[in-house]
């Protein structure tokens, strides 16, 4: 398993649009992915799961990937989150 810390930079937090982008990207990844927000574990392949966590701008999160393509997947996810998920 690999993991990396990052920050949500979207001004309105992880709302519908970025959540939708993240879910789309995560669903394409082979690895099992978990995003840790405080105590909560989120499955980023589920947009409903992401949205119901109501992650605000500036929140610290940890992305964990495990599986054969974990390194590539983690890099992709981190890059997408840090570039604002299309916003």
């Amino acid at each position: 398993m690999v993991s990396q810390k990052t920050k949500v930079i979207n001004p309105s937090g992880m709302h519908a649009r970025p959540a939708s982008e993240l879910a789309k990207l995560a669903s394409k990844c082979e690895s099992d992915i978990t995003i840790k927000v405080g105590e909560k574990n989120i499955n980023p392949k589920s947009i409903l799961n992401i949205m119901s966590a109501a992650i605000r701008c500036g929140t610290d999160i940890v992305v964990e990937c495990s599986g054969e393509t974990e390194k590539e997947d983690l890099a992709k996810i981190i890059e997408a989150i840090e570039s604002g998920l299309g916003e």
Partner: peptide
Amino acid sequence: DKIFDTHLEMIKDITL
């Protein structure tokens, strides 16, 4: 309309 992109993800959602 981009809003339907979100609906699309929701409808495919694994949790649901």
